[in-house]
Design a protein around this nucleic acid. Sequence first.
RNA 1: GGCCCUAUCGUCUAACGGUUAGGACAUAUCCUUCUCAAGGAUAGAAUCGCGGUUCGAUUCCGCGUAGGGUCACCA
Length: 477
Amino acid sequence: MLNDKVVTRFAPSPTGFIHVGNIRTALYAWLFARKNNGTFILRIEDTDKEREVEGSIEHIQKSLKWLNLDWDEGPGVGGPHAPYIQSERLDLYKKYANILIEKGLAYSDPYTEEEIEAFRKKSEEEKKPFLFREHRPENPSAWTGSTPLRFKVKELKRTVWNDVVWGELSAGPEALDDFILIKSDGYPTYNFAHIVDDIEMKVTHVVRGQEFISSTPKFLSLYEAFDIMPPLFVTTPPIMGANGNKKLSKRDGAKDILEYEAEGYLPDAMINYLAFLGFNPGGEKEVYTREELINAFDLTKIQHSGAQWSDDKLNWMNKEHIKLLPLAEAQKYILEYLPEDMRYDKITPKIIPMIIERISKWGDIKEMITKGELDFFFKQPQYPKEKLIFKNTSPEKISDNLKQAEKALGELNENDFTTENIKSILMKIADGLESRGELLHPVRFALSGMDKSPDPFTIASIIGKNETLSRLQKAIE
RNA sequence: GGCCCUAUCGUCUAACGGUUAGGACAUAUCCUUCUCAAGGAUAGAAUCGCGGUUCGAUUCCGCGUAGGGUCACCA
């Protein structure tokens, strides 16, 4: 087993979108497979037809594709163990079920749901855990397929196993029970189907959330029944909601991973953030590229306890990744968020760095536009009267200062109309005044019409000499 | 309730049994700046409690406490 090629899998059920908690488990499985030149399988566990949500399979694939978590086997790409959708593999589960029946390790469940409910209620009243095996029928009739098929626990014992992340784990015999293998509707349960598939697909490392720790003894007893070496278990801690310490779940507002795409996060930033929420390779470096992440990934450095989600940190991480992006690449993203009239203007490329400086995700551009923080680059701004008042300075003085600026800038050659030159010229004038603000504020306001904006030198150099002079003129009037 | 697991700044985390317990996010202040942003600097901020082992415990052990998970014909 140890010398085998690494095989990991992500096995979601198609019950809707997948959220960040699910995706991180997939990410760890993917990182580990990639690091070891192994195989990453996508398998759809659709054995509960009632909970299934239409379109989920496509949505799951879309989510993985957005994050560039490519799968080597699975829906869309096929593979040696196809099909990768459990509802299309029912014969296989029957085959494995028959092996257990022949070994005397599976039997037909004779009870009605009401009867079982009564057993459960009784246990509850007696403050004891409900165990089906205490009600195991003496001479069950042959299984016909219309009743549930149950696993027959052979030996009640303490189960001890080794988890790659947590080390040695164990549970007493009360964790073992005669669980259902195949439901009365003919579909296998998760407990049974995923083990058959992991065996068939030769999965070496089962990466999954810690909610499965308690049922691991059951899984191990199944492997034992088949006389097959179990895979290694890699248990990941939960992700907790941002406000509180509840496990992140759809009920508590966990978002569809694709919403983050819509908000303009970078896939590599999302992966970086997600990986570090519950994993740390040591050292002080935190911003990792995809390649670096694969190299640094180490299952034994996964945390044991839950980590709280933080939008702040995600935003910071995303900004760091935006900074790593080549300018041309960033421009491509930004163009998608700009309205038509800002998109193909000759000004556009010049404002890219200024936009990048002010956002943490592409979606923030929408906000900048709404606030009018971009308009003035493209057209003459309005000067709302209520904003025209500059404290401690008379209108005449301002007008004079603007005229001075206009004159000085007018003497600057068109080709020399750079941020640096404009700054040195305006600063020279401003330094002669009582305060620099007496000049810089009116000039900036003349150019942008905004209370808050980038500095006047940058704006002037972007919009060019003619437009700058014309706006100064207009403002003087 | 039974069983299982976890515990370092507000948050994410680092630290062969020996460190002034480190970094990052967030926060505050300062610098740069007319403003915004970005950048730089500084500050405050943690080993859950009690015992034990040890020359020495964040680290190992026990007991508390707190939190999480799980006890389905769901996955």
